[in-house]
């Protein structure tokens, strides 16, 4: 064999080894993750990043993280991840519904999307969707018990399916807990996930008309909601309570207004995704929900009476067993209709 032939053959063997797919039962050699915002937002992005880090540690694979990508064309970034050897890419935003499956078809690398059921393809595309309404029902129940003015507000940074499900679940829990309550509902913008100033403006307006418990759906914008609750007094001169979602903001709650949070533990779902990768069943629907432990209500503030805590403990199994049927309205049209019917003005 000539020397050049030998070198070419050796290169071919090495290349094929480098691109050899993981054997069944093996975790991916490297996992990419695309985040629209910084993974330090104490919300959706941070929970995604932290969740993947937990799973990576468990299965021993490195992570290729791309943060703050925004909602533009992320395909060059995804291709770059493929070139760096990622065998699975998690596109952690509903805004990546188009780009992620395209890259999967183009490169053959497995991807995981968010809120994109139609793209599910056996062995290629799996999807993560949320069913957080059960946790939000509990948050609504808590709000109904803690309000002094009987006025509670929801401030949402946008109206994606996850936020809508959460708003509907919260409203249902509030109504069940305190039928006399009035519910205010404001949206900051079309995709105002990071608009802290807009969040503060909306929260201030709700406080001005009497809201003393705010349920904030915001990502980065929720810092503005927390700030408004921390600095404004309710009409009776008391605290304005804040109920957060997805992450835990207790470390920055200096005014002690954080009542609780509907936590989403993404490590539970990523664990399912990695296991499906390993056992060859990749390409399924995965849910961030109460029944698999991915959604739960954070330990409430110390100010919450023991009786209310007991009520929350009693309600949770009823939701899990289906005794309490929590509504599921992902579309904003259905959510508005539900809110109008449940809390007529």
């Amino acid at each position: 064999m000539r020397k050049t032939d030998f070198i070419i053959l050796a290169l071919l063997v090495l290349t094929s080894l480098a691109h050899h797919p993981a054997l069944a039962g093996d975790p991916p050699k490297r996992v990419g993750m695309a985040l629209p915002e910084a993974g330090t937002d104490k919300g959706w992005n941070e929970q995604g990043k932290v969740g993947l880090e937990i799973v990576a540690k468990k299965y021993g694979f490195p992570i290729e993280l791309a943060e703050a990508l925004g909602y533009g064309d992320i395909k060059p970034t995804l291709r770059d991840m493929v070139q760096r050897g990622c065998e699975l890419i998690i596109c952690h935003a509903s805004g990546y519904q188009t780009a992620a499956p395209e890259i999967a078809r183009e490169t053959g690398v497995k991807v995981t999307t968010v809120e994109n059921h139609k793209a599910i393809t056996a062995g290629l595309v799996s999807d993560i969707d949320t069913q957080p309404q059960g946790g939000c029902y509990l948050a609504g129940w808590l709000a109904g018990k803690m309000t002094r003015s009987n006025t509670v507000g929801i401030v949402a940074s946008a109206e994606p399916p996850t936020w809508n499900r959460m708003s509907a679940g919260f409203a249902q829990g509030l109504k069940a807990s305190n039928p006399q309550c009035r519910l205010l509902y404001s949206v900051i913008g079309e995709a105002a996930y990071a608009d802290a100033a807009g969040a503060k403006r909306n929260t201030n307006d709700q406080i001005a008309v009497g809201a003393d418990v705010i349920f904030g759906l915001g990502d980065g914008a929720s810092f503005g909601m927390l700030q408004a609750c921390s600095t404004k007094k309710a009409k009776d001169g008391g605290k304005v309570w804040f109920i957060d979602v997805i992450g835990d903001k207790r470390s920055i709650d200096k005014a002690d207004v954080l009542l609780s949070s509907v936590i989403m533990d993404m490590s539970v779902v990523y664990d399912e995704v990695i296991r499906s990768f390993m056992d060859g069943t990749f390409g399924k629907q995965h849910w961030v929900a109460m029944n698999n432990g991915a959604v739960y209500l954070m330990e409430p503030n110390q100010a919450v009476p023991g009786s209310v805590r007991e009520e929350l403990k009693t309600i949770r199994p009823k939701i899990l067993s289906g005794e309490i049927q929590v509504v599921n309205w992902p579309a904003s049209v259905d959510l508005h209709k539900f809110l109008d019917e449940t809390f007529p003005r």
């Binding site: 807009g198 403006r201 909306n202 508005h336």
Partner: peptide
């Protein structure tokens, strides 16, 4: 106009938030 987007929603006016925004 920005302030109104919030105020109108709080009043519960029967206009879609999409339009108000």
């Amino acid at each position: 106009a920005m302030a109104l987007t919030s105020t109108l929603q709080v009043t519960g006016i029967k206009i879609s938030p999409d339009f108000i925004l």
